[in-house]
């Protein structure tokens, strides 16, 4: 039993490392798409589409790595993640649509950018996770 537990812990470390690597690669590819498209190949739509497709594929790999790590978590950790994800999904939908509506009905003087929603999701997820962890301490 000890061997299988040690194996499980080592698989978990490996899954965490893989997620870190795929996240870093995906972020780098995002930078490649944006800065490459604006500064290096502004006239080549073919390269723009190619790098964008690469970015999406790498994003999918990152999602799969996250799913793989999720399977390696223990029952409490899964519950914490699930609750944080539920809050993030729910609040992002409600707040995101409200924010978009502000733009549609001209209550804000600027465009409702998706980057703000992504930031909101990251902050919501982090805060939810911290609160949930405190609850079970």
């Amino acid at each position: 039993m000890k061997d299988s537990i040690e194996k499980k812990q080592s698989q978990r470390q490996s899954a965490l490392r893989q997620l870190g690597i795929w996240t870093a690669i995906w972020v780098a590819s995002q930078a490649l798409v944006v800065f490459g498209g604006l500064l290096v190949w502004p006239d080549s739509n073919l390269i723009k589409i190619g790098t964008l497709l690469l970015n999406v594929v790498l994003g999918l790999k990152m999602i799969l790595a996250n799913r793989h790590l999720f399977k390696k978590l223990d029952e409490l950790e899964r519950l914490l993640q699930l609750e944080a994800l539920a809050w993030t999904l729910g609040l992002s939908m409600v707040v995101g649509l409200a924010y978009s509506t502000l733009d549609i009905i001209n209550l804000i003087p600027f465009d409702a950018e998706i980057s703000y929603l992504v930031m909101f999701m990251g902050i919501t997820y982090s805060i939810s996770l911290i609160i949930n962890k405190k609850r079970f301490e």
């Binding site: 000890k2 299988s4 537990i5 499980k8 812990q9 223990d74 029952e75 409490l76 950790e77 962890k133």
Partner: peptide
């Protein structure tokens, strides 16, 4: 020994 986290 159980294969879970200390927090659990």
């Amino acid at each position: 020994a159980i294969g879970v986290s200390r927090q659990t």
